[in-house]
Amino acid sequence: MLSRTADHLYWMARLMERAENMARMLDTSHRVSLMPQSGDAAPDSAWRSLLANLGLDEAYAARYGKITSESLLDFMIFSQDNPSSIANCLRGARENAHAVRGTLTSEVWEATNATWLAMREQNPATLLERGPGEFFEWVKYRSHLSRGAALGTMMADEGLRFMRLGTFLERADNTARILDTKFRTLPADTELAAPAPDYYPWSALLHSVSAFETYRKAYRDLISPQRVADLLILRPDMPRSLSRCMKEVYANLQALANRRSVETERRAGELEAELRFARIENLVEGGLPRWLDRFLDRIADLGGRIADDFLVPVSR
């Protein structure tokens, strides 16, 4: 397969996944920002940590200054200047799909194209008026539709594997960022293994990755930060956990292997094995934010190596 074709398929899937996770993160932060704030936390702290976590705080400050829900949602949903805004992700997914339209089934193309066409019809005023929750829900469902159409209609060949690789690498990155946003802002003396005193932010986090019911089913107990970390990092049966994402990344890389990709495959396998055999107590002991930072670096490294080995090298 042409490297450019693989590159378009990979980025189409990555950007659609990013749009979905962006909607998930915004949904959580939006819900939290509406909750009565505990203690002395600033009312905009949820937004502030989200921006910092995505590395967008400076870009935002330069453009808007003060944090308000309106300008933040405008920046994260509609802004052309924010490369990760939902509009930019959906347009990027559509443009990548358009470039390889002949490689896609008509279902996948039509789902992705229709999503972008409907996104163009959205406008900030009505979206805020109706409450953004409905919009975030819509983005998630459109992403489900694109992914489902791909799994349900595409040949299980190299092209689909590059799409899956893009989906899970992006999801691993995004889930890690969601966790990082939360754990980084915890007070230093937080007892992680004990039930969380502030129930609502934690349940919002679980809801944001569609894991609330799963948590109940898996642990049949009150929500503790450590178990949330266990579920979203190490549980192999949790579709958005880091362990599950890396399992998929590694399996697809193994199937796609070429002469240049030996080291990339080794690094992915190493990370996958670490997650498979890790214990949550050990990760927490060493400090979760630091571990998550390191994880994000390793994901970025894999992304760069995949581009060099198979796709259109980033540094070109």
Binding site: S3, E158, F310, V312
Partner: peptide, 28 residues
């Protein structure tokens, strides 16, 4: 391209080395 079963390439997919033309594929 599809009817002939050959690759549809753009200029950026091709490069020349030692006076030989190559296309960039996922297998090198």
């Amino acid at each position: 391209a599809q009817q002939m079963g050959v690759e549809l390439v753009e200029g950026q997919d091709l490069f020349v080395e030692d006076e030989q033309v190559f296309m960039r594929t996922t297998q090198g």
